[in-house]
Design a protein around this nucleic acid. Structure first.
Length: 363
DNA sequence: AAATCGGGGTT
DNA sequence: AACCCAGATTT
């Protein structure tokens, strides 16, 4: 294949014309046409799906999406909802800043854009939680507007197709990928084209064991021709992650309710409800003796929970204590309260804490 | 056990 | 511009 004309990046050149055509022809037969956000394909539903899909795979996102749009079917409904409701609907998906940004953006749309998502790439990108790729995905899918996306799937496809070396998260590499993405845009069918790219990357040009023999782009794929499919895209340079430890207190009152507190609005597990946590057992004891009455030595250590973040590993040691009463009146502090088992579903909680609290224990 | 994913925040 | 942060899932 001839070297593509870099000067022409941004417009489809004759040399590129086949890319979108072949991809769309493949999509018509093999693409995903029944995703819940495609029917009906409204700006609000596309937006919500794109935010969920930023760090979550389609299969995982679908039940969350269904539940979310059933509870909050429109942008004004999202804007008007209590923040706790939004967090509860997001609970388990991870990256909770996405949910807070989502609602903040909805509220800004109510104030500045007449209660609708703006149909303008710059206005969209200015909203919290929406960057260049997400804005492009919304506009192309909701309206058919001509913008290139560059998510993880597209990065992988383009890195292989053009044989681009270097970690795609690196700015210089990402810049090249954007240029390639712009160069392949078709002149019509943008909604299908955007979905087709994501489908190709998700179902066929996968990270491990891609199905190259089925690929509509295999004839011009540099990685395929040079036998470098397995080594592209270049993996992220690894770093050792530190191991951290903490204790969590599982305190129950005489009614079997669990003491929970709301974490601060920034940092890890922001705004989520969780168990009282301290760096070690003696700090847990100090917290307990300050807040509660009872014999701390009765606390029973449960099996530790291991949880992995991208930048550190956390081992949580749960300490369970029952028939606990507090010194003060809990009702005075909205961020610390007794929670009945039946209320768990309505609170946003980190996945490992929810799992811990739902483990069956002897009475 | 390690890699992954897009946007926002900080330096 | 170049890191750093956030978390559940998949491999």
């Amino acid at each position: 294949m001839n070297a593509p004309a870099l000067a022409a990046a941004g417009t489809a050149t004759p040399a590129d014309a086949g890319y979108a055509e072949r991809l769309l022809r493949w999509f018509d037969i093999n693409g995903r046409h029944d995703l819940p956000w495609q029917h009906p394909r409204t700006p609000y539903r596309v937006w919500l799906s794109e935010i969920m899909l930023q760090q979550t795979q389609v299969k995982t996102a679908i039940p969350y999406f269904e539940r979310f749009v059933a509870a909050l079917p429109t942008l004004p409904a999202l804007a008007a909802a209590p923040g706790d409701d939004v967090m509860a609907l997001w609970s388990g998906l991870g990256y909770y800043a996405r949910a807070r940004n989502l609602q903040a953006a909805a509220r800004r749309c109510m104030e500045q854009h007449g209660g609708e998502l703006p149909r303008d790439i710059d206005a969209l990108t200015a909203l919290p939680g929406i960057g260049r790729s997400t804005a492009a995905a919304i506009l192309s899918q909701a309206w058919g507007d001509r913008h290139a996306i560059l998510d993880g799937n597209v990065k992988r496809v383009l890195a292989r197709y053009h044989g681009i070396d270097g970690y795609p998260g690196q700015p210089a590499v990402e810049k090249q990928l954007w240029q390639r993405a712009e160069s392949h845009l078709p002149s019509a069918r943008m909604a299908d084209y955007t979905q087709a790219q994501m489908d190709l990357g998700a179902t066929l040009c996968t990270r491990a064991d891609p199905a190259c023999v089925l690929c509509p782009l295999q004839d011009d794929c540099v990685a395929r021709r040079e036998g470098r499919v397995a080594e592209l895209p270049t993996p992220k340079p690894g770093k050792p992650v530190p191991q951290k430890h903490a204790c969590v207190l599982w305190l129950e009152n005489a009614d079997g309710e669990v003491l929970m507190l709301r974490r601060p609005p920034t940092g890890i597990w922001a705004s989520l409800w969780t168990l009282p946590q301290a760096d070690d057992a003696s700090a847990s004891r100090a917290w307990f003796e300050h807040e509660a009455r009872g014999d701390f030595s009765r606390a029973k250590a449960l099996p530790p929970i291991d949880h992995a973040f991208s930048h550190y590993k956390l081992r949580l040691q749960p300490l369970r204590l029952r028939d606990v009463a507090l010194h003060g009146r809990v009702g005075d502090n909205a961020d610390l309260r007794w929670v009945a088992r039946g209320e768990f579903a309505s609170l946003g909680m980190p996945a490992p804490i929810r799992k811990l609290l739902e483990t069956k224990l002897e009475p």
